[in-house]
Nucleic acid binder design. Structure first.
Ligand SMILES: [Zn+2]
Ligand SMILES: [Zn+2]
Ligand SMILES: [Zn+2]
Ligand SMILES: [Zn+2]
Lengths: 163, 163
DNA sequence: CTGCGGATGTTATAATGTTACAAATTCTGC
DNA sequence: GCAGAATTTGTAACATTATAACATCCGCAG
């Protein structure tokens, strides 16, 4: 598995998509989960870019391609994809993004550019270890971590320092 | 300024409230910001417990005490309070909680118990340093950090390990 | 008094997410 | 293949969270 492209750098994004879909198929097969056409299409739409996409944006794209769809269709697909670690929900944006480390049992940390909207998923053991230790020091049992960093990506610095 | 009580331990919570209000008044005076009755009352309601409170919960409490109020009233007060660092928004819960470190220029990290609902705000320099370094390694300019840990607080462990 | 700016009131609406139940599809044991 | 069970999908209504737009009030400077 090659290194991931940085979202805010020009890159052949079709590779991102096909790699994500291939991994998804493999993971679902291994886990005996059914990556149905709707679920796969939703995953593909989420991967259309590296910008987190709202559920209703996905819904609109589905509708625009003739797929009769209502909110539960999308939310169910997204729930499924989250369950198998194929997408993440970005709580601070009410939006969803494809997981860049599917199947790797990781704690995602997202760098979200407020200018271009792209999000980069990182895993950093120093960070997650520090978090677990801080929580452990309070005798708290960690189950889920939401870590989202808003700011400016390298490409957007200098251009518009302010909104 | 004494150490804060742990939210999930029995404590004299009136002290939490009065300390928070006193700090808020001091901060607003210093910053030439107007802590109007509505804003102060909203802050007080947020501080009614250590559980994050939804905007519409605040609204209901205001209404129940005769204060004619609509959503914008609450959201405006919450915006103001956030702006002056007196409350935090918990993105993963769509809820708000009083800041335990008002005026201290900090990055809050929240331990949120899924059983009792209480949230503890920590500041941990090891964690924030690790986060800033990880973001810096990607040449990302950090502006805001959302860090919310869901799990079980000490008081709730053992009782109901599952939902 | 008068005008100005911040704060609030009021109504309506947008955006996000869920419940409930019916219909269709897929799987399983035979 | 076929009956029944389980999963998935369709559909309509609804719940929750948040904002837009505009009128009004209030404290204060001139
Ligand atoms: Zn890409
Ligand atoms: Zn991931
Ligand atoms: Zn308390
Ligand atoms: Zn705080």
């Amino acid at each position: 598995m090659s290194a991931r492209a940085l979202p805010y750098r020009p890159h052949n994004h079709d590779d991102c998509v096909s790699q994500a879909l291939a991994e998804a198929r493999a993971i679902c097969q291994e886990q005996h989960a059914r990556l149905t056409p709707t679920r796969e299409r939703v995953l593909e739409l989420i991967w259309e870019s590296h910008k987190p996409l709202g559920a209703y944006d996905v819904l609109a794209k589905l509708a625009s391609e003739g797929h009769s769809a209502a909110p539960p269709t999308v939310y169910r697909a997204l729930d499924f994809l989250q369950q198998y670690g194929l997408v993440h929900r970005i709580a601070s944006l009410n939006a969803f993004i494809g997981c860049a480390h599917a199947g790797e049992h990781h704690t995602g940390m997202f760098l979200i550019c407020r200018s271009c909207g792209n999000a980069l998923e990182l895993t950093d053991t120093t960070v997650s270890k520090a978090i677990h230790e801080a929580a452990g020091a309070e005798a708290f049992v960690t189950e889920a971590i939401t870590l989202e960093i808003a700011g400016l990506c390298p490409s957007c610095q200098g251009e518009q320092p302010n909104g």
